[in-house]
Simulated scan of single mutants.
Amino acid sequence: MKLAHLILAHSNPDQLKRLVDKLAHSDSRIYIHLDKKTEITPFLPIADNDRVSFISNRIKVYWGGYSIVQATINSFEEILATGIAFDHINLLSGQDYPIKSTDHIHQFLAENKGKIFMHSLSVKNEWQEAIPRIERYHLANLKLPAGTYRMEQMVNAILPKRKMPEGIVAMGRSQWFTASKESIAYIVDYVKKEQWVSRFFKMSWAADELIFQTILFNSPFKEHMVNDNLLYVDWSEGKASPKLLTMEDAAALKASDKLFARKFNSEADSAVLDYIDNFTA
């Protein structure tokens, strides 16, 4: 079972190196998209062997904009272009960390070949707070000067609500997922062929949490989707970002049946990563 890890990162080269080392396996390759706003030189030693490489077509990533979608798609294209017969492609952030051994992760995915592990909720029925992301015009991707929010208000007051194309069901939630290589190739090809996709989602807020689930749910791959992205995340603080995991979360991490967890900051608490390394050894 061959596995490609795609890591979207923007900071903390030491923590990224630790993640890369932890993911290392004879049947895996690791690809890193480093935000183009970040100077790459301190990160270059991470790719010290032929199993680790940086994505060449880097994008400047801005929170909430389509840029992170484009960065992900560019990265998928480069991974597919290698011609390596990967079974799954696993999308992680630089602040994620495996909470199972690499052998366990590879064995699990080998037993679930062809499956797509995504947190996928119906926007209409299960994730209604995301409806404005689709119905309203969001101009963040246009990089307009000051006054963008006021312009958005004016545009949305004048124009009718946006709608998905007829027959397309909007799905989404977490941007992180593990999917079969075939489904990733389908996504890349679909975005190229169906020009409405990029046009529509460039006007959506946080399109990275919507676009991939929506494409696959409305495709022949729907039957292979599992509503679980294999990621332990704690949203108990009720903030826009999940709780930073520390030694306070050690017991929950060890007890979890997930493969990965987020998010961590080794500068704030590296002991929890040491703890994970011990129980996943």
Results as ranks from 00 to 15, higher is better:
residue 75 S to F: 01
residue 20 V to A: 12
residue 209 E to P: 05
residue 34 L to C: 03
residue 112 N to I: 10
residue 36 K to E: 15
residue 45 P to N: 03
residue 176 W to E: 06
residue 5 H to Y: 15
residue 19 L to W: 12
residue 111 E to R: 13
residue 51 R to K: 15
residue 139 L to A: 01
residue 144 L to C: 02
residue 203 M to C: 07
residue 171 M to Q: 06
residue 257 D to G: 10
residue 208 D to K: 04
residue 111 E to S: 14
residue 19 L to K: 13
residue 11 S to F: 14
residue 272 V to E: 08
residue 212 F to G: 01
residue 61 V to N: 04
residue 108 F to S: 04
residue 117 F to S: 01
residue 276 I to Q: 06
residue 221 F to C: 01
residue 100 K to S: 08
residue 5 H to T: 02
residue 241 S to P: 12
residue 265 N to D: 15
residue 83 G to F: 03
residue 40 I to P: 14
residue 209 E to S: 05
residue 176 W to C: 03
residue 172 G to L: 06
residue 106 H to R: 13
residue 242 P to I: 00
residue 68 I to W: 05
residue 82 T to R: 01
residue 171 M to E: 01
residue 250 A to S: 14
residue 201 F to R: 01
residue 84 I to T: 10
residue 242 P to K: 00
residue 165 P to C: 08
residue 115 K to H: 09
residue 24 A to R: 15
residue 67 S to M: 13
residue 5 H to E: 02
residue 114 G to S: 09
residue 51 R to A: 13
residue 108 F to V: 04
residue 178 T to M: 12
residue 108 F to W: 14
residue 231 L to V: 02
residue 64 G to W: 02
residue 263 K to A: 08
residue 70 Q to E: 07
residue 210 L to F: 02
residue 218 N to S: 01
residue 132 P to D: 11
residue 139 L to P: 02
residue 223 E to C: 02
residue 56 S to N: 12
residue 219 S to Y: 09
residue 202 K to N: 09
residue 184 I to K: 00
residue 216 L to R: 00
residue 236 S to Q: 11
residue 41 T to E: 15
residue 4 A to M: 07
residue 162 R to H: 10
residue 266 S to C: 12
residue 32 I to R: 03
